[in-house]
Design a protein around this nucleic acid. Sequence first.
DNA 1: TCAATAGGCAACCATTTAGTTGCCTATTCT
DNA 2: AGAATAGGCAACTAAATGGTTGCCTATTGA
Lengths: 103, 103
Amino acid sequence: MAVVELFRALGDASRLEMIRRLSSGDVFTINSLSEGLDITRQGARKHLQILADAQLVTLVPKGRGTNIQMNREMLDQGRAFIADLEHRWDIRLEALRRFVDNE
Amino acid sequence: MAVVELFRALGDASRLEMIRRLSSGDVFTINSLSEGLDITRQGARKHLQILADAQLVTLVPKGRGTNIQMNREMLDQGRAFIADLEHRWDIRLEALRRFVDNE
DNA sequence: TCAATAGGCAACCATTTAGTTGCCTATTCT
DNA sequence: AGAATAGGCAACTAAATGGTTGCCTATTGA
């Protein structure tokens, strides 16, 4: 299930910070995105690969650098998944409420 | 950051399936929730502890069993976090669109 | 052309994770 | 009281994860 990979990818402080930065809309390269994360470039690169595998991010080689693009659709899928869980929950609560009222 | 733990907790197939089941609103006990997950009760119990640590779930001892309650609020926090990322992203796209239009 | 910049690849290490098994305790039902 | 049920605790294993270092390649710019 793709959503498992999505959540797993988001479940790490470094990766979540990367996504937070990318959501600003600024353009990042592997080097610039790695700065201030307290890990080496190679460490950051690994995280980036995980984000890319989860399709949260796309790596686009450009000249001697690599541009990183965030992928809004995957965030949306994650949000929709959670919303669906909540919806099922709400439906049940509503049914329960009606049941209690009719007693 | 609590949201990291939340996403990490959701980033596993067994745990996500547990949450999916719980979202139905049915009452589960550790044994009943473990059934059909293809892991032992002890394995499931460990996952459950991770969900409890992330506050996605509360374990309530009841008689010789243990009732498991899902915690809607944490799901909500996760959804809100993603929605916020998307919002930041949208704002930037909007600004970019206006910039292009004014050229 | 050649130094500097951006990055890739691979090996390696320590810690965490997912899962198991074995055995002990507490509650319930007859 | 005693069997059956629900679960806890601890030790152990294999594999995944997060991180590092060393070195190689490709693009750019003076």
